[in-house]
Amino acid sequence: MAAGVMGTSSQLITVFGGSGFIGRHVVRALAQRGYRIRVAVRRPDLAGFLQPLGRVGQIHAVQANLRYKQSVLAAARGSDVVINLVGVLTEAGRQNFAAVHSFGARAVAEAAAAAGARLIHMSALGADAQSASLYARTKAAGEGFAFTHVPKATIFRPSVVFGPEDGFFNRFAALGSRLPVVPITGGATRFQPVYVGDVAEAIARAVDGAVAEGHVYELGGPEVKTLREIVDYTLGVIGRRRLVLDLPAAGASLMAGFVEFADKLTFGVLPDYLVLTRDQVALLGQDNVVSATAIDTGRTLADIGIAATPYEAIVPGYLWRFRRAGQFADIRTI
Rank of each mutant, 00 (worst) to 15 (best):
F162C: 08
D246F: 05
G48Y: 08
D198W: 08
G221M: 09
M122H: 01
I13A: 00
A76P: 06
Y318M: 09
V269C: 08
G116C: 10
Y217Q: 08
F172Q: 06
H215S: 12
A105C: 08
A252Q: 07
E91G: 02
G251H: 00
D80A: 12
T138H: 15
G268R: 04
A114P: 01
I331R: 14
S19Y: 02
R33Y: 02
G221C: 04
G116W: 13
F191N: 14
R67G: 12
R42C: 10
S131Y: 06
K264E: 12
G18H: 06
P180N: 06
Q51W: 06
L50M: 13
H101G: 14
F162E: 04
A313D: 10
V199Y: 05
T14C: 10
D296H: 08
I83M: 04
H60L: 09
A75E: 10
A29P: 02
H60N: 10
A111G: 01
A146C: 13
G163W: 00
E91Y: 06
A112P: 05
T297A: 11
G317Q: 14
F328H: 11
R33P: 01
N170Y: 03
G214A: 01
A124G: 06
V150M: 07
Q286N: 15
P44M: 14
A111D: 01
E312A: 09
R323V: 04
R323Y: 00
G187F: 05
V5H: 08
Q327S: 11
D80F: 00
Q70S: 15
R28H: 04
L179I: 05
S102K: 15
Q286P: 00
A109W: 14
G220P: 11
V160I: 15
R137N: 05
A210Q: 15
A206T: 06
G305Q: 01
V275K: 11
G317N: 08
S159N: 12
A146E: 07
V181F: 08
A115V: 00
G209P: 10
F103G: 02
A292P: 11
P151R: 13
A249C: 10
P248C: 11
A308Q: 10
